[in-house]
Design a protein around this nucleic acid. Structure first.
Lengths: 189, 189
DNA sequence: TACGTTGCCTAATACCCTTAGGCAAGTCGT
DNA sequence: ACGACTTGCCTAAGGGTATTAGGCAACGTA
């Protein structure tokens, strides 16, 4: 009986891929075991259980998004940075719906890894805002508004809210980004 | 053996209450059966199954939100209407997290009831925008941006994103509404 | 090569969801 | 008021997922 060569990372990646295919909520240990060719209980050698696996997928997605964000923002600022950051998230959500869903779940337990990620994500939002003249004490609010709009739009679009009405989401997306740019350009109003 | 006096409406309401207490994803037919004092299979006389129940809870939440919206918006327009509409959703989400989660699930199957709700919800957003001079062909985009920001903010707040950082979400909420008001007041740019 | 570690297995338990079939409590026609 | 029909609730049974316990064999290492 040869071994399957599993590891926490492999199991997590398979789970993330499965989430992209059938939805994060439909990810099941049974399905993963079938896919990698082992019996269900064998997975417990690599992950602590169903909930642990969900957290791992969430952290994986956040890490991928953050890394991609750091690359996308390199050398950009202001409107350019905002657009790159926003488009990155929208594209990631479209290509990896399950991962994005996981990333949006929030509520990961505190851990060194989670803290490091939060730090890096903070750096990203700082980089975006650095191109705008938002007063220091207003930055928190600006970050929250930007995050809210992006997240809300992407989720509505992913949920099919714009599917059966004209015009397409694409045009609204550009309006939303223009609105955000104008907003940040004249913050706080 | 006396009867429990159940009905689709009662089961749905119990499910919604349970969702508010433990989260929409944790709502289970077993738990509902225990709560109303019947055996699990008895519920199948009232709902078609687990998925059917979820849809019913979603429609219940959307209906409650819409009805409350119609009352909150009566006699208001412009900034007043926007604020009433936004605060209503935020308050509803805080008081009925499970219901709000259900309402945000989207993707309810097409039905006469769903169509009626969509119609009424469209009327609400129209009422909010009527106080602003948004060009007719731009209304769709404005509605989407407003919806995205509100939804995103409320979800981030519900997910605890603002919990461990100052200032509180309350202040950011006011900034967000001011930003939306300014945005709609000078749409498209 | 012998040893300890560990990856994977079978077995067993505990939910949850769903369908089938039966009984009796309501409801309705006469 | 009585019988017949409808239906709300029940038990029984089967299938899926999650988790734990305990065993065996494949690997890394002395």
């Amino acid at each position: 009986m040869s071994r399957a060569g599993l590891s926490p990372e492999v199991v997590t990646t398979v789970a993330a891929d499965l989430a992209d295919e059938v939805g994060f909520a439909q990810v099941t240990l049974s399905a993963i075991a079938r896919r990698v060719g082992v019996r269900l209980p064998s997975l417990y050698s690599h992950v602590a259980g169903s909930e642990d696996l969900r957290v791992r997928v969430t952290l994986l997605a956040l890490e991928e998004l953050t890394t991609a964000g750091e690359q996308a923002l390199a050398g950009r600022s202001g409107r350019e940075a905002l657009r790159a950051f926003a488009d990155l998230h929208r594209t990631y959500a479209a290509q990896h719906p399950g991962r994005y869903e996981a990333a949006g779940s929030l509520r990961v337990p505190a851990s060194p890894e989670a803290a490091r990620l939060a730090e890096r994500m903070g750096g990203l939002t700082d980089a975006v805002l650095d191109g705008y003249a938002v007063p220091p004490e207003e930055r928190v609010h600006a970050v929250r508004v930007v995050g809210s709009l992006l997240r809300g739009f992407i989720q509505l679009e992913a949920g099919g809210a714009f599917e059966h009405s004209r015009p397409s989401g694409e045009e609204s997306w550009h309006r939303a980004l223009d609105a955000l740019d104008a907003l940040l350009g004249s913050w706080p109003g």
